[in-house]
Amino acid sequence: MHKNHQIPASVMLRNHQVIFNGKVIFETAENLELPAFLKACYQDLEIDYAKFYKMDLLSKLGFIASEYLAKDRQLNPETALILQNSTGSLETDLNYQAGISDENAFASPSVFVYTLPNIVLGELSIRHQLQTENAFFISEKFDASFLIVYLQNLFSTNKANAAICGWLDLDKEGYNVFLSLITQDEKGKALTAENLKENYEQFKTRA
């Protein structure tokens, strides 16, 4: 039998709102640009983490979402980080591309480093000191059933005891973030593809 993993916490960032376990817990004016919204979230979280300011927008989105998940709880030291999106690191790729296309522009090595989607996994690992399983998948749509199978393998082979997983997408059109904490240390919703997907689809219809 597999261990009884559940989803005690999930967080969505959308429409200038932070939605935690289905409830709006923080919001800003809708005319804020994404960087300003993220900074407001950072202040709401009352944390002090200078590295935040150096991150690209994708990493900031992942950081803020996972801070809400980790708030008021100790993450299991064997928490795997498994994320998906459809655009990879596109937003930062475009920034870097602009720097090398125009001879008068400045291409920065620190921007180049963020032109890999899995850098956000490094940022989260450093923040929570997780020397754990990581993977970043690119998928046209959120693939909950794949995630379930993948997690089942990680848990049943003892490669992870818990996970932060979900969708972390950003492009010119906007952002779409939905992350879940999966653990057997706390009670929550059952770990099923339906429960992971339900929130994703809820987002899609309201968008």
Binding site: G88, L116, P117, N118, I119, L121, N134, A135, F136, F137, I138, S139, D143, F146, V149, Y150, Q152, N153, L154, T157
Partner: peptide, 27 residues
């Protein structure tokens, strides 16, 4: 279904891991 992964310089090896993991689960 299609699985695409982008995980810096370990991507090619991780692809084998992902394949093994899915096969182990009889997917």
């Amino acid at each position: 279904e299609l699985i695409t992964l982008s995980n810096a310089c370990i991507s090619g090896g991780l692809g084998l891991s992902v394949g093994k993991r899915l096969l182990e689960e009889n997917a």
